[in-house]
Amino acid sequence: MLKLTHLQKNYPDFTLDCSMDIHPGMITGFIGPNGAGKTTTFKAVLGLISRDGGEIRLFGRQTPALSAQDKQRLGVALAETGFSGELTVPDVKKILGAFYQHFDPLLFQKRAVELALPMDKKIREFSTGMRAKLRVLSAICHGADLLILDEPTAGLDVLARDQILDMLRAYAEENENRSILISSHISSDLEQLCDDFYMISGGKIICHEETDRLLSDYALIKVSSQDYETLDRSHILRRQKESFGFSLLTDQKRFYAENYPNLVVEPVTMDAYIMIMLKGEAM
């Protein structure tokens, strides 16, 4: 669906060098700290910024620049940007209808009501949450093959986040070839939604893993300094110094649980994984 091979963008104080592969039918998370290069990657893919090297293959074709026809097949929601604040929801419906060949005005209207978006207010009078909902709604009503969503749930309360995630799940289930590339700081959203995820730090992809495998096979082992010395470290990926000794990340939970029954072997959450990947030391 989308393949990036050493996509590069150079700024005086930052260099992006990103490779990733988004397969048809997959929901792929894109995680990393602020300033890691997530938004730069999205912008480069969408042709909003020029790229300094690398290759982008979209829908199986190499794309030096996205054509209007390519963009018809994309649904986009970017953080902190959207339609002009001078417009209203009915205006947005008209505009999207004029832009997208397969825009479904009835679906848009139905979802707008479900999301409780005000019809008579200008967007600039919307709350942060309402704007976020409208951004996602604008991306999912024209039958796009690939959704590119940058922080789509930012600023939403738990209920609204759940609504949006349900909509995205329903969207993906409607057609088995549809893909979603989504970035979020709310790791629980990604745990629930994504089939796999890429993690970026300092402009480079530092890992790619399937979400199910992360939740089933990865673990955090908490050991004292003495236990650490005697531990078989052949399956340890990262270690982080703690007051009690070390936190260790492994992708062989069962091995340590079976062979070291006295150690604390905890299932890893996305948050814990991000923390140890960013702050820990590679083994």
């Binding site: 209007a68 986009v76 902190e80 940007t81 002009s84 832009f99």
Partner: peptide
């Protein structure tokens, strides 16, 4: 100016037109 306000142009230029 309205297109530029609140970074709206970033989203606008992701829509399907050249």
């Amino acid at each position: 100016s309205h297109d530029e306000a609140d970074h709206s142009q970033t989203y606008l230029f992701a829509l399907p037109f050249e």
